[in-house]
Computed example of a mutant assay.
Amino acid sequence: MKTVIFIPARYASTRYPAKPLAMLRQSDGSEKSLIQMSWEAASAIRGVDAVYVATDDDRIAQAAQDFGAKVVMTDEACENGTARCANAMLNSGIEADLVVNFQGDAPLTPPWFVEALIEAMQSDASIGMATPVLRCDRATYDALKEDRAQGRVGGTTAVFDAQMNALYFSKEVLPYIDPGKVAEPIPVFHHVGVYAYRPEALAAYVAHPVCPLETLEGLEQLRFLHAGMQVRCVEVDARGRVFWELNNPSDVPRIEAALSQLGAGS
């Protein structure tokens, strides 16, 4: 099964303009851009035939080419990463059995998160689209709650049914838990912003109009649910690694700390 990864990257961002080109300090004291770190993380995933940066911005394209990435230019009108992946396939003529949307703001995503998606879709032809979920540990749960308490839009949570099909995704912390009843294991799942699609699911997505919940939450995957398409959640294990996306400038120190920890353990 031919699998390709697209890393959607746009320069404009309400919460963090020019985010793909933000420089982050590595464990050795050097700096790398967020887009380069994301490309390196995607390139470490097994079972993938090619990795592309998908962008409509010449500055991002040039930076990506400078560190050796393949680039596909996309239309400015792409409203989110899923639409950008579909547009990248259309513009480039790339054909694949499986398309992975590897978010450009999640350089801490371990390769086995995406490998689990690929394996799930290889083993079940009925899955049109899949995404990872990670059970929150206490530190992650507290960080999610702190973001909301401070009015920051941070990570996303997911709730799903007994067959692991998504019921809803939200930037609120779901499900609600009475503060006095939070016990281990915490029944909150952090959504990892990676998606794997079959080409027909991508085509169905862009053919469906933008839905109200997608607009309100700012979560592209809600369009799949609104259209009645299943989204399979695949539970993954962090194996002791810290996972966090770069959603706001305030996330930079948290990610740099995780990078320092990774470097110390290598």
Rank of each mutant, 00 (worst) to 15 (best):
S92V: 12
S92D: 08
G93Y: 00
G93Q: 05
G93P: 13
G93L: 01
I94A: 08
I94D: 02
E95P: 00
E95L: 07
A96E: 10
L98M: 15
L98W: 05
V100A: 03
V100I: 15
N101R: 09
F102G: 03
Q103L: 08
Q103R: 05
A106N: 08
A106V: 04
P107I: 02
P107N: 05
P107V: 02
L108K: 06
T109C: 12
P110I: 01
P110A: 03
P110E: 01
P110N: 02
P111Y: 00
P111V: 03
W112A: 01
F113D: 03
F113Y: 13
V114W: 00
V114K: 01
V114Q: 02
V114Y: 01
E115M: 00
L117F: 05
L117V: 09
I118V: 15
E119K: 06
A120L: 09
A120H: 06
M121G: 06
M121Q: 10
M121H: 11
M121Y: 10
Q122T: 08
Q122L: 14
D124R: 12
D124K: 05
A125E: 15
S126E: 12
G128A: 10
M129G: 05
A130K: 09
A130M: 10
T131C: 11
T131W: 02
P132L: 05
V133R: 13
V133F: 09
V133I: 15
L134C: 10
R135E: 05
R135M: 05
R135W: 04
R135Y: 03
C136A: 15
D137E: 14
D137I: 05
D137L: 06
D137V: 04
R138W: 13
T140R: 04
T140P: 00
Y141K: 01
Y141G: 02
D142S: 12
A143Q: 11
L144S: 08
L144W: 01
L144R: 02
E146D: 14
E146M: 14
E146T: 14
E146C: 13
D147P: 09
D147A: 12
D147C: 12
D147S: 12
R148C: 09
A149V: 09
A149Q: 12
Q150V: 01
G151Q: 13
G151F: 11
R152D: 10
R152N: 11
V153T: 13
V153F: 08
V153W: 07
G154A: 11
G154T: 12
G154N: 10
G154F: 05
G155I: 01
